[in-house]
Every structure is written in C-alpha cells, then in structure tokens.
Design a binder for these strands. Structure first.
Lengths: 208, 208
DNA sequence: GTCTATACTGAGATAGAC
DNA sequence: GTCTATCTCAGTATAGAC
C-alpha cells in the first residue's frame, strides 16, 4: 500500500510503532469479540499490557482508536482484493473477496461494517480517513460488480448498491457467530455455506 | 395467542396496561432506531411522556424492558407465521414470513435478533421468557424448513440450522438500513430484493 | 402510581510525578 | 512516554413527597 516509506527510523520510533500495532491488534480482537460499547479502554490496556493513560498518547479517544482499526482493516481488504487473480471472471473475484473477509471475521477480527454499534457507526461517518478508505474500496468493488454484471453473472434485477451492501453485510452477519458458537460446523464449512447461500440462495434451483 | 384472558378488568387496570403497551411501543421504536446501548431510560420516558422513575413501576430494569419488547415481537412473529396460508408449499411460507419480518423492520421495529448489542444478547440468553418464546418460534420455523426440504425446494447441502439462522439474520441485516438511508429504493423494492437475494442469491442462474 | 430529586457506578479522559 | 491517581459525566436505579 504505502510505498513512500521514509529512509530511516530510530529504535525508539520503531518501538513506538510496534506498540501501536499491538494496540491496534488488541483492539481489533476486542472489537470482534465484545463489540464497541462493551469494550472499555481498561480492557484494551490490560490486553496490551500497558496503562490506560498510555493509550491516550497514541490515540486521542476511544472513537479515534476504533476508527484506526477500521481504516487498517479496510486497507488490508483492499490489498486482499488486489491479490485476487485478475484473470478470473468478476463474480469469481467477488466470491474470493467474500471468502477472505469471512475468514478474517471467523478468525476473530472486527466486522467490516460497524453495524453492531450505532454510536461507532456515527462517529465513523464523520471520520475523514475512514470515509476515504471506505469510498476507495467501494469504488473497486463497484467496478467488479459492474464487470460481473457485464458478464451476465449477476441477477439482472438486483441493483448495484444492493449487491455492494449485501457483500459488506455478510461480514457482520450474526449467522457466523451463532454457527461458530454452536460448534457443529468447521470454520471452512461455515464459509462455504455462507458464500454459497450469498451467491446462489437458500432455495434449490427450479427447472425453469 | 393468549386465550385465557380474565373476564373483567377495572378501568385502572386497563389504563395501566395501555400505558404499558405505550412503553413497549416506544422502546421498540427506540431500539430499532438507536440500538440498545444508545437508548437511555430518559429517552424512553421522554418518548412515552412520563417520568423516568415511573418506568421502574412497570419494568424492574432496562434489560427487563428490552426483553419484554423482544418477547412481544417474537410472539407477534409467531402469530404472523400462523397467519400464512397453510396450504402453500414450505418454501413459500418461509418467504412470506421473511417478508413480514422485513416489513416490520423497515417500519422501525427492533430486529428479531439482538445482534446489534452483545450486552443485550447476553442478558436475553439468561431470560427465561425470551428463550422459551424464541425456542417455540424456532421450533415452528424448523418444521417449515424440514417441510421445504422434503419438498426438494432447499439447497440440499445447506444445513437446517444454517437456514434458520440465515432467516433470522435477515431481520438485522444492515443492508436494510443503508438502502433505506440512501433513499433510492422504496420499502417494497428493498423487501423484494432482499427476499429474492436470500432465496435465489446474487448470481444469475447458470444453465447447468 | 406518578412525580422530582438524588445516590451510585462504570468508564472515558486528564494531571502530574518520574 | 509511561505510570498512578483523579476528574467528570452520563445513565441506571432508588427515595420520598403527593
């Protein structure tokens, strides 16, 4: 992503950034497991192993910290999207992207959409960095959707924005959590069924 | 539902129950719009037009109040399910149920699954009345799923529990909120696309 | 049973020593 | 920059008059 890295960093700077990464990782886990409201700054500090006050030297508020986590996740998603082989048909690339995001989510990451917290959602909508990253990613996915549509692989009556939101929404689908909690299906099987149901539906194809 | 209603009620009792209904209605709206955490008891009191303290004469806690709302909603859903014509094939009855729940949600009601709030979710899991009602409803839906399966109208490789959770999850799908917020589609169109995508998928059927 | 006023608590954020 | 200790405030719940 970021190719314009400065030439040198002092040890202290490196340490600082490593700690910051650790904070983001911990927050990501906690967001994924407990959700935004239930996650306290004390929780994060304890998970990282530092004092709560120190968190505020890195991020000015809980909202800013959560936003940073989301921005990083969206950027990683953009990378994952770029990594999907470009020669595949559009619908297959969308499928690959969904697989990647679902795997992330099952691995304990925060959902891509902060739908689980209206308050976080509002603060993110006002966050410039988040909105920019989200727009850029949505732009790319939108292109894939149009490609898939041009290739005739999408249901013609479904609108582009409906398809886009639906793909985003799958990453915060509580079905994932319930199935994982029930323990009767492996992560791989859950992903398979979600992807299948998303693209081909619950109903058996009828011999039209 | 409740056929064993007592023969007579005093005026005061009736007033009391009407107010209680009003409280449940207001809470239902607020839950649907703001979510559990963001909704304060002050909000509810203001919406109903009574003092906050009075709320506690009706419900012993915020959790209990939210649980009462959810129980009522599940009971209504059970009624709606019973109202779907029984002569229809299983898959059509499931579709009808989904339509009803989506319409409720778009009308401002709380989602059937409290997935938007982990804390509420936990308190509900410990709530006897809620769990009983949820189990009863799931039982009925489960029967419909098995009927649809026996009729060959479900994808054979999707598990029953996956289908059940997926149907529940559609009622708290953030796609609904985003599409409604974008304003480019009518409620009816949103419901149509959601039902279509849920049962038949995003992808166009391939001529196998 | 409804009101006003208040106690209590959890959690976000800050101050100041080191 | 990190720590401990503290401030502040929102919000649940309760007390007490009527």
């Amino acid at each position: 992503m970021n190719l314009a890295s400065p030439p040198r960093k002092s040890f202290r700077e490196t340490q600082f950034e490593l700690r910051e990464e650790a904070i983001l990782d911990a927050t990501n886990r906690l967001l994924g497991n407990k959700g935004y409201e239930a996650m306290s700054m004390d929780d994060i500090a304890a998970e990282v192993g530092i004092a709560k006050g120190s968190l505020y030297k890195h991020f000015e508020s809980k909202e800013a910290l959560a936003a940073a986590v989301m921005v990083r996740l969206l950027a990683q998603t953009d990378d994952a999207l770029a990594a999907v082989p470009a020669h595949l048909p559009g619908i297959k690339r969308l499928e690959g992207l969904l697989r990647w995001t679902l795997s992330q989510r099952l691995g304990g990451s925060v959902p891509h959409l902060p739908s689980t917290s209206p308050s976080l959602q509002n603060s993110l909508l006002a966050n410039r960095a988040y909105m920019d990253t989200l727009m850029a990613l949505s732009e790319r996915i939108g292109e894939l959707i149009q490609r898939a549509r041009a290739e005739g692989s999408l249901q013609p009556h479904l609108r582009d924005e409906f398809v886009l939101y639906t793909l985003y929404a799958r990453t915060c689908d509580p079905t994932l959590d319930f199935l994982k909690a029930s323990g009767s299906m492996s992560d791989a099987e859950i992903v398979d069924q979600m992807v299948s149901a998303c693209f081909h539906g619950l109903a058996a194809p009828t011999a039209a």
